Every structure is written in C-alpha cells, then in structure tokens.
Computed example of a mutant assay.
Amino acid sequence: MSESVSVRCPVCRRAHLFAAQCYPCACGAPVAPPLDPGAAAAPVTQRSWDEEWVTVRCAVCDRPAQWPRPELGCPCGTVLRIPVAGVDDAAPASPAEPARPAFQPVTIRTARDAVTAAALYLRWLGHRDVRRAELRAPSGVALAASGLLAQVDPTVRPAEPRDVECLWLAAMTESAACVYFTLAGYTDEARARADCLGVPLFVLDLTGTPQPVNDHADALTA
C-alpha cells in the first residue's frame, strides 16, 4: 500500500487525502509511483500520452516499467495530476522475459482504465514499448508497439465488421500485426470477419482481464 499525501485543488481549494494505486511488477512485487508531498497538484487542461505515463523502478528487482501517472478527480470537476518524485525520465528497456508470471489485472472503472488494462496486458505479452499510436481510431484509442497495432474500444457498442477491417487495414499499412480489445464484445459478423483476417479479439471484463474471443487471441496469449 502506497503512502497517502495531502492534495489541495488549486481551483476550489478543497483538500484531499490521496494514495497512488499499486501495480504489479513482472517479478510479482507491488509498485506505486512515489508521490512528492512538497509539490502542488496541477489541473489537467490537455492530455498528452507522454505525460500520462511515468517510469518507476521496482524496489525489489530494480526493473523499470511505465505506469499511469497518478490523477485525482476533484468534486468541483477538476482533474488533478499528482506530482511524482524520484522517477526515471527514460523509457524502460524491453528485453524479453524468460519466464512469464501470471497477469495482474487493473480494475476497470473508466475508459482510461480500459486503455491502461490493455496496455498492461500487451506488456505482459512481451511488448515493452507500448505507446499511444498516432493513428486516430474510429472509436476508442489506438496503441502501438514494435510490429503491433492495437485498438481499445471502451464504449458500450459491440464492435462491428467495419471496426475490425479498419484496424486490419491500418496494421497492413504499417506492416504490423494487430489486436482488438473491447468492453462490449463483438457482433457475430465482426467475429467472422476477424477470423477471416486473422485478427485476435479480446473482451475486457471489469476486473481488467482480457478474455480471448477467438482462436487467434488464444494463440497470441499462448
């Protein structure tokens, strides 16, 4: 459990007690971004993928990994970015792990959590350089890694054949493989199209665990 710090909203001046969420390192130890109690929280006025992730080293194995930068939603409607202390500026290296531990999910409460869950799952699969793709996805958020393009759709609408085809075409343009994550599942036609095109399909349950939907997803997980 990470330590709590006092955070004051600069807009409404409310004070909050905040503790950063812990995430599982590849070694199994919990990792939480170290908070800086001496720095003031700043309102989030615009989002940048690079600013939403921070590199933190595990205290047990010293392995660096990128985790979501802590944020707090104030009742006044302001989203606050919580200052983090003692973190690495450089992105972690991406060696392949000789043995893979069990995936540790992140509970999904918001659309941002769904994107985080998918990114963590891709890292668990060995794609250490996961980042937000420059591609504008038809719905949801596109993620990219070396040789891979992923789409994360946190809406309540089941994915349709066109959604799968757009992802596949974008991946073909980049000479990359692709994978689709969604919260609401897929229509029968979308699943059939994905099977034909070789696109792995996953459904994100609310625990944050991606569930394979087709044989291509089973093969990717294995």
Rank of each mutant, 00 (worst) to 15 (best):
S2Q: 10
E3P: 03
R8G: 08
H16N: 10
L17D: 13
A19Y: 07
A20L: 00
C25Q: 02
A26N: 12
A26G: 09
A26D: 14
C27L: 07
C27A: 06
G28V: 01
P30I: 05
P30Y: 03
V31Y: 00
V31P: 03
A32K: 09
A32S: 15
P37F: 00
G38V: 00
A39V: 11
A39R: 15
A39I: 02
A39C: 10
A40Y: 01
V44F: 01
T45K: 14
S48V: 11
E52L: 08
T55H: 12
V60F: 14
D62H: 14
R63M: 11
P68H: 06
E71M: 12
E71P: 01
P75Q: 12
V79H: 13
D88M: 11
P92R: 10
P92I: 04
A93K: 13
S94H: 13
P98K: 10
P105C: 08
V106N: 13
I108L: 07
T110V: 05
V115M: 04
A117L: 05
A118Q: 02
A119Q: 05
A119L: 05
L120E: 11
R123G: 08
L125A: 05
H127N: 08
R128N: 09
D129G: 09
D129M: 05
R132V: 03
E134G: 13
A137W: 02
P138Q: 08
P138C: 05
G140F: 00
A142Q: 08
A145K: 10
L148V: 07
L149I: 06
V152Q: 04
T155V: 01
V156E: 12
V156H: 13
P158R: 12
E160P: 00
P161A: 03
E165R: 13
C166Y: 14
L169K: 15
E174L: 15
T182H: 02
T182A: 14
L183V: 07
A184S: 13
D195I: 00
D195P: 01
C196R: 10
L197T: 03
G198E: 00
P200Q: 07
V203A: 11
V203Q: 07
L206H: 09
T207Q: 13
P212R: 05
A217H: 03
A219M: 08
A219S: 14
T221M: 09
A222Y: 08
